[in-house]
Amino acid sequence: MTLDDRVREFIAEIAQDLVGLDVALFYQANPRAFDTAAGIALRTHRSVDEVEPALERMSAGGYLETVSRSDGRYQVFALSPSPDVWRTLCRVSEAYHEDPRSRKEIILMLVHRRLQQRADDQAAGGSGPDG
C-alpha cells in the first residue's frame, strides 16, 4: 500500500465516491472557486444531485465553508482557508495525478466502497442506484 493515512482517510470518509473525488480535485485545482452546487456541478460536469452530497460531506468535514443568503435562496461553497485542508487536498491531488499506483489504489478504494454499498443495499432488500 502506498497511500498515506491521511489520503486514505479522506477518500474513505469525505470523497467516498468518484463524484466526491472530482469535487475535491476541482477545489484543489481552483481553490478560489466559490459557487453554488449548481455552479460546481456545471464545472465538474456532474448532476446537481450527485454533487450536492459531496459538497455537504466536504462542508461537514471542514473542507468547505458555506455562505448562505439570509433568505436561504442559495448556499455557496468555498474552500476552507485552513492550511491543513489545503495540505490534505494537495496530497490527494498528488496521489491521484502523479503516482499511478496511488491512483489505482484510490480508484479501487472507491470501487470497493461502491460494491460494498450495493451489497449492503441488496442485503437490506432495497436496490442501489444501479439496481
Binding site: N30, R32, F34, D35, T36, G39, L42, Y74
Partner: peptide, 8 residues
C-alpha cells in the same frame, strides 16, 4: 483568480 456563477 476566482470562478463562480454570474448570479452568485
Amino acid at each position: 483568480v476566482m470562478c463562480t456563477s454570474p448570479d452568485v
